[in-house]
Amino acid sequence: MNLYPFAAEMLQILIILAIAPAFVGWVRMLKCWLQGRTTAGLFQPYRDLMKLFAKDVILAENASWIFRFTPYIVFGTATLAGGIIPMLSVDLPLAASADAIVLVALFAIARFFTSLAGMDIGTAFGGMGSSREMTIASLAEPAMLMAIFTVSLAAGSTSLSQIVQVVFSGQSVLRPSLAFAFLAFVLVSLAETGRIPVDNPTTHLELTMIHEAMLLEYSGRHLALFEWAGMMKLTLFMALGAVLFFPWGIGTGSIIASGLAFVFLLLKLAAAGIVLVLIETGLAKMRLFRLTEFLGSAFLMATLGMLSFFILE
C-alpha cells in the first residue's frame, strides 16, 4: 500500500493549520501599509491565538451545550475542508470523500451551528447576527454553487481533483465561462468569509457587525477556535480560488512536486492577499439591503459563465 497520499494529506492539513494565521497576518500587514499605519507584524495572529488559548472561559449562565459544542464543530469542518481541497497534491485520500458541493455544505454546517450559537444566549445582538448571517448565506450559496457548477460543467466533474487536472491540462487558455465563474467566485468569497463590502471583520460597532455579533459572548479557548477556524476559512477560500482557476504547480504524486506545490501555494496566497486588500481598501461596507444587488451580481456572473459555456464553447 502506498502511504505517500496519506502523508501528503496529513501534511496538507498541518500546513493549512499552520499558515492560516500567517495569511491573516499578511492581509493585516498589507492593509496597514496601504493605510499608512505601522504593522503588528506577520505573527501577531499567532500571539493572539496563544493568548486566547491560555485564558479562562467565561460563559453566560444560560449557555447550553450548543454554545460549547459549536466552536469544536466549526473548527472540525474547517479542518476537514482543509484536507479536501487539493493544494499540495491531486491524489489526496480525503479529496475523494467530498466534492465541491460537499465542500460548500461543510461551510454551511459551520454557519448553521454558529448561527444557533448566536441565538443560544438570548441577546438581541446574537439573534441579529444569526438572522443577517443566514440571510446573506441564503443569497450567497446559490451564487457559490452556480460558480462551482459552471466550473464542473466545463470540467465534466464536481470532484475537485478532477477539476484541477482538467483545467490544468486544458487546451484552451481563454475560457469565458471560467473567467465569469472566477469573477462570481471572488464576489461570493467576500460574502462567505465576511469581508468588506459585505461584513467588516474588525468592527465591533453594534449595528454593522454580522459575524462578530454571533461570537460576541465567546471567550477563551472557544473564541480561539472560532478565530482560528475563521482564519482557515479565509485561507481556504483564497486557496480554493487559486486551485480551481489557477491550478499551476499542483503536484501529482512525488515529494518534490509537493514541495514545489507548497512554494506555488505560498506565492498564490500572497498574491490573493494583495488582491483582497486592494478590494477591501477600495470599497466601503454596503448597507444590508444593498447586498441583494451585490450577491445578485455574483449570481449573474455565475449564470453568465454557465450560459457562455453553452453558447461560446
Partner: peptide
C-alpha cells in the same frame, strides 16, 4: 486561438452589456 479570443471578447461585450444594465 482566434476563435477563443473572439469568444472571450464576446463574453466581455456581454459582461459590459450587463454591467450597463445594473
Amino acid at each position: 486561438i482566434a476563435a477563443q479570443i473572439n469568444s472571450f471578447l464576446a463574453a466581455l461585450v456581454l459582461l459590459t452589456a450587463f454591467g450597463m444594465l445594473v
